[in-house]
């Protein structure tokens, strides 16, 4: 829904490049209002829902393509290489950091993210048995993070999270 929260400001501005004569001289008094747009969706996690449901049972799943043998983690329901429908497989939940960034700001996209301790390590992890990298927070002393670091999936209680992707995070193995 779009709402007008307030009439905020009326101001007179000068031409951006100070051009004289200013062709827009009669249009320099400006009013600004504050708008708020909010939307609510019943957002389906679609064919990868099982991944999130398994997290509640502290199991880490990926999908495997019988055509090419690649294992997708995060899961893809359709193999992009073969266009074959993939199979669910459980992984051990251990892996290796292949890339990372120490983040000093995070998007406040949900309450789970707002609770992440900053600076925090955002890591791309090659799960053992997988062919792609899984991005998630690695909870460790930022200075300890390095490419090649061994990590494992840790689990959170379901009642404590807003989005089910936060049922998990990584910790040092």
């Amino acid at each position: 829904m779009t709402t007008v929260l307030s009439k905020r400001d009326v101001l007179t501005v000068s031409a951006p490049l100070q051009r004289t004569p200013d062709p827009w001289a009669d249009f320099r008094q400006i009013e600004i209002v504050t708008l708020e747009l909010t939307q609510q969706y019943a957002h389906s996690l679609g064919k990868t829902s099982r991944f999130f449901l398994e997290l509640e049972a502290r199991r880490f799943f990926a999908t495997r393509c019988d055509g090419c043998g690649r294992t997708y983690s995060p899961p893809r329901s359709l193999c992009p290489d073969c266009l074959k429908i993939t199979q669910w497989v459980e992984l051990a939940g251990t892996g290796t950091v292949e890339a990372y960034s120490i983040m000093h700001f995070a998007s406040g996209i949900n309450d789970d993210v707002k609770q992440v301790e900053l600076p925090g390590v955002f890591a791309y992890v090659l799960m053992d048995g997988a062919s792609t990298l899984f991005p998630h927070w690695l909870r460790c002393e930022p200075a300890r993070a390095h490419i090649g670091m061994r990590v494992r999936v840790a689990y959170t209680q379901a009642e404590h999270v807003q989005h089910p992707i936060h049922l998990m995070y990584f910790e040092e193995a």
């Binding site: 960034s101 890591a123 791309y124």
Partner: peptide, 14 residues
């Protein structure tokens, strides 16, 4: 990526 809380700065940084 979005729901985890990553930003484009972090993806590029990684």
């Amino acid at each position: 990526e979005m729901m985890v809380g990553g930003t484009y700065t972090a993806f590029y940084a990684a």
